[in-house]
Amino acid sequence: MEKNRRTFLKAAGASAVGLSIAPAMKAHAFGEYFMPSDQTGQQENALIGKHWGMVIDLTKMTEEISAKLTEVCHAAHNVPKLDNIKHEIKWIWGEHFDHAFTDHMNLYISDAMKHAPVPVLCNQCENPPCVRACPTKATFKREDGIVLMDFHRCIGCRFCMAACPYGSRSFNLQDPRNGLENRKPTNPQFPTRMKGVVEKCNFCAERLAVGKIPLCAEVSEGAITFGDLSDPESEIRKVLSASFTIRRNPGLGTGPSVYYIVGGGGDHA
């Protein structure tokens, strides 16, 4: 009797667990559902590259341009302005040279560079530490080199933020709509985010898809060149071969895809 009751209880418990897990397993089949590939495509004028990159010419950068980059980018992507500075979200912003290039310590740097605002954003690394850290592949590298966020999948563990050596990522510590006027997006064509997910610059993937270059490059008044680093004929490669450029902390092995032209002093300033 004793034995039988035990066996019965064990069996009952096991089947209860099985019954409650089964529907959940069905609903969350392993692997995501994609549209069949013969039913999907890209717009004809979409910009397609193998390794998108950016060159930011600091000799042409002014406070005004730098501020404008932030403003238009944040407006286009519904980046909130939150009262609490701790909850700040930013995709691209002007940084002091010392903070942007921590491995280029130099007391006697040219005045032009000392005061030039350095726009910093996600470096779209070739070997992104954030992608390595993410436990759900919510952040991943596309074939064209862009490191993207899948906000639907992010669990908000913030491992990617600890992994990013550039401080490029922000976390939604509260509903980002709290920081939008009337809780309405500034750009209704683009989604907002929700609380509890990490976000960052997406190299304007949504604009590339419709044949436009990233917004910051477009409004930069020639200070930012965008293009395919893998194409030797591209404009960006020409710019790179014509000037001396540096990247942020390349010694960490991340392979940043954003390059900076630093001024030589007098002539350019």
Binding site: I85, K86, H87, E88, I89, M161, G167, L173, Q174, K195
Partner: peptide, 13 residues
């Protein structure tokens, strides 16, 4: 509300 009720911030996540 979200994790904003904690002392966490953009730089200390």
């Amino acid at each position: 509300f979200g994790l904003g009720i904690t002392g966490l911030r953009r730089d200390v996540t």
